[in-house]
Each structure stands twice: as C-alpha cells, then as structure tokens.
Design a protein around this nucleic acid. Structure first.
Lengths: 245, 245
DNA sequence: AAGAGAATTTGACATGGGTCAAGGCGCGAC
DNA sequence: GTCGCGCCTTGACCCATGTCAAATTCTCTT
C-alpha cells in the first residue's frame, strides 16, 4: 500500500508558502507581536506543515527542539500513563502556540484531530526571533499565563465537578473558544470524538454520551449531529457548569 | 478580644527589612535574575509582609494589583465553586512567585498554611522592574512554563489516577519540592492538613487517611506524626505513582 | 501534667460513574 | 444505492470512593 504525497501524516509545504501577511490565525496568535514591517523575519524563521487527521506531531518526552503555531484545524494535547490511560490536557485551535517547555523534553504530546496546518520553528530560530523582537517574549509570557489560568480552571473541574457540571463547562468553553462561525452563535462545533472529550473531562465515553443525552432531555441542548451541538438554554448551562444546583 | 500586633493576620514589616542580599529564597526564585549590584532596585520595589497561619493574602476574583514572592513558609492556592467545594491548585513554598494573572483579576486565592513571609510588589513597580531588568521577564516566562508543566501533570493525576496513585505521587512531589532539610532525605514534611491534601488530590479526608494507612501497612511509608512521613520504599512508591501495578 | 478542642483515623453503608455488552446509525467506499 | 465499519448510544450491573458517624490521638492551654 503506497502512501501518496497528500496522504502522508506530516507534509512539509514548499518554502515560500509561509505568508504571515495574509495568515488568518495571526491576530489570535503570538505572531501578532511582530509588526508588519518585520513579518519577513517571521516568515524566514518558519516552515509551514500540514498534519493529517489523527497524526501526532509532538511526542511526549521527545527532545523539545521545535515549536508550533497552529494556523488551522484543531489538535489534542495528550499525556499518557505507562498502562495506556490517557489525559487530554487541552485542545489547540488556530492561533495556539505550542512547545514552550520548561525542560529539554516535551511535557505532552500533540495530535491532529482534523486536518491541521501549522508553522514550525526550530528552538534556535525562535530564540533569535525573540532577541530581534522583544515584544514577542511579552506575548509568550501573556500566552503562558492564560494557559496556566485555563489549566487551573481545569484542575477545579477534574478535582471537584460532577459529570454533568464537567460536560456543561466543556460545551461553554468550546463555544467561547471558537469565535462565531457558521450556524449562529449558539452552535458549538466538536471536531474531536467522544473519546477525546472523555479523556479531557476525566470521564468515559459512555458517561459523556449519557450526560449529553440528559442535557438533551432537559432541553438545554440540541444534538444535531454527534459533532454539532446547539446550546438552547445558555443561562441554564452556565448555572450547571458552575455547580449552582 | 484585642488582636495584638504580632497576631494580626497580615503584618507589614518595617521598611528596610527587605534584605535581598541575604534572602534565603533568592536562589530559588525569579529574584535571582537580578544581579547583585542591582539588588537595591529590587529591595526598593518590595515590601516585606508576614501572614499568620490560615490567613488569606490573595483573594480569587479580586483585582490583581500586586504580586508576591514567598520567602518562607508554605501557602495553599485555592479555587472555589459557589457551593463551597474547593480545589487546591497547588502549594507554594519559599521562592515561589505568585500573582501573574492573564486577566485583571486573580484566578485563584492564596492562604498561609504555616507562618509565611513574603515580598509584595505592586503591579506598577513590577512592571518598572521588568523594564529595568530584562532578564526578569525571561525568568518569569521560565517560571510560568514550569508551573504549566506541573499543572498538566496534575491534570493527569486528577483525570486518570486512582487514589493510591494520587497519594503516592503527592508524597514524592513533596519530597522533591523541599530540598533536603532535617530528618534525612527520605523524610517528607507536610505542613498542610489532610483537608488540604484531599482538596489538592480531588479526594476526601477519609480517603487520604485510609490510603496512607494502606501505604503504611504495605511498608512503603512510616507515619511518624501526621505531618511527617518517611518514604521507606522509594522505588515501590515511584512505581505506584506511575500506575505501574 | 491534665483537660479541651481540633485533627485524624476507623468503620459501616451509599452512590456516581466505570465496566461490560449489545444495538443503532451515519458516512464513506464501491 | 447499499454495504460495512467505526463511532455513538443505551442498558444492566459493579466497584472505588464518598458520606455519615464514632472512636482515637494529637496539640495547645492552663
């Protein structure tokens, strides 16, 4: 069975395909720290890559020799236990910067959920870029701070919320994550499968399914397709997510 | 009932009591980014405070107008749900920098466990300090990165580990947290109560107690006092913490 | 050293969510 | 169109951990 060029798990797109000037993810990303006149610096430091659905592009424990900036699609960030138990520590959408590691090795892995495109920087080139553009470091710090706040919110969810509260929190988070796209503002698109959601919320596939069923029964949501849910009673959902009944 | 000067929950120590040059926490903290000749800058920006055991000094949701650097003692970092359920997101020992907030408000609260001393900086003064000492920003980024990695490790713990695995992980983490002090290297000191441990590990007080009892029965640990535990079989504990049986 | 109060431990029982096992259904291949 | 496979849903039962209650042991005060 041959693997064609377009189906390889990870494709390096041709040099020159990095076009920061027209990049839709720029305004949402740390790249926004680079002024328009310096964008050529950024383009010179990046390689554009395409990752096939399901393919990993960062491996937990591997040497942290590069960084990624997602430009389209959604990735899952994963940590594993030796026996295979899995925790999804987050989902990374367009604009998300990945790979800042405190140590020499990645603390988590990353895998494409749908088709993902990203800019890849070598550790060395990013360092050079930071020296040229000091504002970049400030942006990275701001980005790390907000990721930290999100992680702490997730600690509260995993440590103290019930299954119903977790699922409600998740749907609202997803709604807030993606700026209004097609389908109206109450529609939440879920590119990840139930297994990913379960591993993100510290539950099982079955509990996710049952809990969504209960939210549907209560009229809080409508499940159009498995991957597309509408929030019908946002206020009710916010109360549920906060554990207020 | 009068509150004497020394028993007030939060005491501002006299100006001039900030002595970075001799601060035992400096080498472990972001302050280490400041060279000796610039330490006066740092001293000028800081106020030294003392917090009584149990007293809060950062309130979740309050305006994030200052920052803290713990110089001695241990604090717990807490997040609350409206109905009172509590998640301890971490413990902060000497050297830990607190208060970097992505937003205008603190994302978590902080309370002294034992007697805590700390340096307090106003948001504005820290900003000035960062402008004077660029290396400080790099240190803050490094500090945020390692906190993020720790938070993700805790997500794995809360989402996927059993009670036994959580308690074993916690004891090893505490052992690694505090550099060897009195009592030999296998002794773990636990200034926090069982309730704090439970809220950190997403369990109940009773489960903590029972699990410690089981570790004791198995010969993995010795419980000298409730607040002092010796790890007798470190290899066994590491295996347990990783879920390897 | 004794006493009081708080923290911890221990025990009996309850339950939320996990596990195991069938179905159902949506979507792409042919 | 319909076939087949993977994902999702639903159901029955079980267990790890929570809840409630009491006994025990620390620790601080007097």
């Amino acid at each position: 069975m041959t693997v064609t060029e377009t189906h390889r798990p990870l494709t390096l797109l041709p040099a020159g395909s990095v076009a920061c000037m027209t990049c839709g993810a720029r305004s949402a990303s740390v790249c926004n720290a680079v002024e328009e006149r310096d964008l050529r610096l950024l383009e010179g430091a990046a390689e554009k890559i395409r990752i096939a659905p399901g393919a990993p592009f960062m491996v937990e424990g591997a040497p942290a020799d590069c960084f990624f900036n997602i430009t389209s699609g959604t990735a899952r960030l994963v940590k594993l236990l030796p026996d295979g138990r899995r925790q999804v520590t987050g989902f990374a959408d367009a604009g998300r910067f990945l790979g800042l590691a405190a140590t020499e090795r990645f603390g988590f892995g990353a895998e494409a959920i749908d088709a993902v495109t990203a800019c890849r920087f070598s550790r060395k080139r990013l360092r050079g870029l930071i020296d040229d553009v000091p504002l970049l470091e400030r942006r990275l710090l701001a980005s790390a701070s907000s990721e930290l706040a999100a992680a702490q919110e997730q600690l509260l969810l995993l440590g103290r919320k019930t299954a119903l509260e977790r699922v409600a929190s998740f749907l609202l988070e997803r709604q807030a994550a993606l700026p209004v796209c097609r389908g109206g503002d109450e529609t939440v698109s879920l590119p990840m499968g139930r297994g990913d959601i379960a591993d993100y919320l510290g539950l099982t596939i079955e509990t996710i399914s049952r809990t969504l069923g209960m939210l549907k029964t209560r009229g809080c949501i409508a499940v159009d397709k498995a991957s597309e849910i509408r929030i019908r009673l946002p206020a009710r959902m916010r109360a549920l997510a906060a554990g207020e009944d």
